[in-house]
Design a protein around this nucleic acid. Structure first.
Lengths: 343, 343
DNA sequence: GAATCTTTCCAAAACGTTTTGGAAAATTAT
DNA sequence: ATAATTTTCCAAAACGTTTTGGAAAGATTC
């Protein structure tokens, strides 16, 4: 049986540093933490020595004492089985960037069949694995919001549920830019608009459909068609295939997100349509790969880094006890017009 | 200043459970851990009570005592700036699934500019945040392999570096299936093959290029063209644009991965080519969205869950001290022929 | 009934840090 | 020179588990 790392090579502890300098561990600890009751000369010595010895505080010990983990959790909603949705990746990327800047770590998981999603939240919180959560894919009535809020567990979310429970969140506001998008479609000669949406209780779906309808109304257009999918590219592909086979198919598909639009593109091609001429297709999110679809996808690009930064900032403020109960940061997507809507 | 969760609501500890049952904490601990020196009746009582009180062992305390974190780390190589590459997501998804089945957690991060990649590994290990690592994007000479190996830190990797250092790894073997792919292209009438590759020292690049060249040789075809990109869709788009403007452009593009193929598709379309007829394009990886490109992408689908399962299995075995130094699991990709190569 | 074994439990010692509440030494004020 | 103050340091007590090395009680054997 081979020895593991920790059995063979004990990493240096604060004791080692203290012994080497003939100081107490208290002084070493306080020197490194920047307390002002340690002489400058001593502090310098400690810092240099600790650095040289490769000392890093044991996270478990620190966490046990400080009662915090310097880690925040991100759990992929179980309804999106795997976290291979490109949106999640780009979102997590932003969170990771922002968190590591502040020396926090990101613990991720997807709820498995064995262990329910709720139980995973519970386990992570109750076992002190994480200090707080970032939520996404908010729903109209969201048990996660109720649950975390009831237990007083800090969290921040992308999108705010309609439960009337205040929590720091980022809201995407796109009423105006959606109007521009619809206007652009009209200008290009498209007139029979349909909305390719997702589950009805998703905040994303609710908002984006609202903006769609609002734009139609404002431009005095007849109400558009509404299709519901599971927001996967395959789901959208099947739904749009059916839609295009109907007697009077739409000639413009506004999709709730980019991935849905991927499926719509596929379906349109398969029906022999030239996208951008015979039919217009637009997405929402602004994923990186969306500029390389055929044709490149018109979309509303949300400022992912800005969103991640705001969420992390709000959550960390909350962890520090600085009240920011119902803070809401509003971000505006940018309209990226590409060939899929006639350019 | 609002109270945080832990200040207001202390979670139940093992002491609470013990007191309630008039037992010692030792007995409670051992009952829950399944030791055989506790009466069955007592054990049942303990388990039920702990469950009812919502007790979950404090991770920090357990980790401090047991000297392990039940967490494994996954660090996105800094060369792929953000982890929005779809492959990483699908890969992490597999790891997460597999790890949570065994009650391990997955800690992810991308190296920032501030803190070098190497220092991140060091910090996580030295502070006991993780018990081991999963590596991907192996390189010919990989400092991560040398570094982790030298320090005796357990890890397993997708792809094996050429440093001569043994470590448990998963190898993708596609010589045969690559031959099938090339044969298929020839059958469809394509003859001027080019390989759209990535950085030369990436194991993926080395292997896949080798199979490409091997297949050409075996079929007695003239050596193909080789293009180097950064393996992003945008990078590939630009490179392929240039390639197609050359005097005698290839009529079949074999891409080192699917994302590269996305860029190639875009470039081909922009050159007015009908993909699948005028030019063939194939990828490697089998990302989910690849079945919805225009036209759907021919690709070699790697069995992601199988890979993740093997890696996790090998790493956990190593953590348990069961020697498996140089174990190597071989997986075979599946050829998915779609319209992008003529169907 | 005493001696031996099993079964079932527990007190106390770790694990490595942070923090509390002083104490000694150095400095300044009286 | 003494008192008051500041500076600099430290011993000891947490934090919540797991594990070690028994001890008490019950069952079995002589």
């Amino acid at each position: 049986m081979s020895k593991t790392f920790w059995e063979t090579c004990m990493p240096t502890t604060i004791h080692d540093v203290a012994k080497k300098l003939n100081l107490s561990i208290t002084t070493v600890s306080r020197a490194l933490d920047g307390y002002d009751d340690v002489a400058d000369s001593t502090r310098k010595l400690v810092i240099v020595t600790a650095q040289k010895m490769g000392y890093a505080p044991n996270r478990a010990a620190r966490q046990l004492r400080r009662q915090k983990a310097d880690t925040i959790g991100f759990i992929i909603p179980s309804i999106s089985k795997h976290f291979n949705e490109p949106f999640f990746t780009e979102f997590m990327s932003g969170l990771g960037d922002e968190l590591s800047k502040r020396n926090f770590d990101l613990l991720v998981s997807n709820a498995t069949e064995d262990e329910g999603e709720r139980s995973l939240y519970h386990r992570w919180v109750n076992s002190h694995k994480v200090d707080g959560f970032i939520l996404n894919r908010a729903r109209r009535h969201d048990w996660r919001v109720a649950y975390l809020s009831e237990w007083g567990i800090p969290f921040a979310g992308l999108g705010r549920s309609h439960d009337g429970i205040p929590y720091p969140s980022v809201r995407i506001e796109a009423a105006d830019v959606y109007l521009n998008l619809v206007q652009h479609l009209i200008d290009r000669g498209f007139s029979r608009l349909a909305f390719i949406g997702g589950p009805a209780d998703l905040i994303n779906q609710i908002d984006r459909l609202k903006w769609f309808k609002g734009a139609l109304k404002k431009l005095k257009l007849e109400p558009g068609n509404l299709i519901t999918t599971d927001m996967s590219s395959t789901g959208a592909y099947e739904a749009v295939c059916a839609l295009l086979s109907s007697p009077t198919p739409p000639d413009a598909l506004l999709c709730v997100n980019d991935q849905t639009a991927y499926g719509a593109l596929h379906a349109a091609h398969e029906h022999g349509l030239t996208v951008g001429r015979d039919i217009a297709i637009a997405g929402f999110d602004g994923l990186r790969d969306s500029s390389h679809t055929e044709p490149p996808l018109t979309t509303l690009a949300v400022p992912m880094p800005e969103i991640a930064q705001a969420l992390v900032h709000m959550l960390l403020k909350k962890l520090n006890g600085e009240a920011s109960e119902a803070e809401e940061v509003v971000v505006l997507p940018e309209l990226c017009i590409r060939a899929s809507t006639g350019g």
